[in-house]
Design a protein around this nucleic acid. Structure first.
Lengths: 221, 221
DNA sequence: GTCTATATTGAGATAGAC
DNA sequence: GTCTATCTCAATATAGAC
């Protein structure tokens, strides 16, 4: 009945170990280096030996991306315990992406290849998109409650736009790494009138002066 | 020396014929149906017979997308002779995309798969992105000159955002066809304060009344 | 649990006849 | 110019030994 847990302790550890290595291989070697064989070699297992832990190539790569999300959430904000300034963390995450071209490529390709309903990773990505939009919406509602973006904006629609921008900027960036993804997201945030976080609670009611809300435009690019 | 032109008249016609058929196959059968064999069957040629006109699968698919752009430009605005209202044509094009899922998928996949510098279609997409941004920038500058978007916006940055939105919305749409891509683009355009086209030139200075520029928010979704 | 070795599949490229 | 038939190649899945 161990199948109920699905994995023995040792398997769990090994699995995790494989994912860490795979993540590194992809990040370093790029998407082309991301073949089952390459990863198996890096882990020091045979192809079959490694696939045993995941079942198939698709499942393995799906898990790589899942693991990456986990790491990103940990570094850039856990959805259950959102950081103090989630919108900055989002921008940081975008900025971080520019350091790991291989992972960006892996994500872009898989998310597009899995679009067909019959694809084994279809449901994973579908849910992931729903989740991103939901997180985005929550964060934006929070900003709205804090009076940092105008009350007439629709957080749900903005969340869709942010998710689209994130994906679309990555594609353009892959063709031109001089494009500054984070700067473009920041430009968008300024467009919607995002106000900087008010310094904690200093005596003076600072940062919310009577200048309405439209601020200076983006400087870059 | 016929190689200078590269093609005989008959070849040119056949080529065009193949592309039209291929376009239909992809649009109808989806990306999965877009195998060399499937297209060759639909055209009534053998795989080799057909590939003879293009050289390779990559080149064929690249040409399919190129031909599609041609058709879209013709229907939705030629870049050399921009239509009276290019921004509406852009939105129309997005709306039109929702009618041809197979082509959207083909485009999304190829544009992501070709991101590696070594890929045969890399240059094609790289140039296509540059061109889209350039067209976008020109259109936005025009809107700015006509006082239909605020003067402090940066057309170049907005062009990048529009291209990213277009791509990113398509990806999300593939996972949820109830997402209205055109409506989201329109929402973005309202966000940046786009004013409706002034009715040609009626005596009354209408449509540019003193309401500043921020208009009502998007209604949908 | 892990390996080696093999099978299978699928696509695309090529050669040479008609 | 076009077809038939064949080849190569890569990649993943599977069978069965240790």
């Amino acid at each position: 009945m161990a199948a109920a847990r699905g994995l023995y302790a040792k398997g769990v550890v090994k699995r995790a170990e494989i994912l860490e290595t795979a993540l590194q291989v992809v990040a370093e070697e790029g998407y082309s280096g991301a073949t089952v064989k390459q990863i198996a070699d890096a882990v020091g297992l045979s192809q079959t030996g490694m696939l045993h832990y995941f079942g198939s190539k698709d499942a393995l790569f799906r898990e790589i991306l899942r693991r990456r999300d986990e790491i990103n959430y940990a570094s850039f904000g856990d959805p259950d315990h959102p950081p103090a300034e989630p919108i900055n963390h989002f921008v940081d995450l975008i900025r971080h992406n520019a350091m790991v071209p291989g992972l960006v490529q892996l994500y872009s390709r898989l998310s597009n290849e899995s679009a067909e309903p019959a694809h084994p990773s279809h449901d994973y990505f579908q849910e992931r998109y729903e989740l991103s939009r939901q997180i985005g919406r929550t964060v934006l509602e929070r900003l709205q409650a804090d009076d940092r973006i105008p009350p007439d904006l629709d957080p749900a629609q903005l969340a869709v736009l942010l998710a689209a921008l994130s994906d679309g900027l990555q594609t353009q960036w892959m063709y031109d790494q001089s494009l500054d993804m984070a700067a473009h997201i920041e430009y968008f945030l300024r467009l919607i009138g995002l106000q900087p976080e008010a310094s904690p609670p200093p005596a003076e009611s600072k940062g919310r002066s009577g200048d309405g809300r439209r601020r200076s435009r983006a400087p870059r690019r």
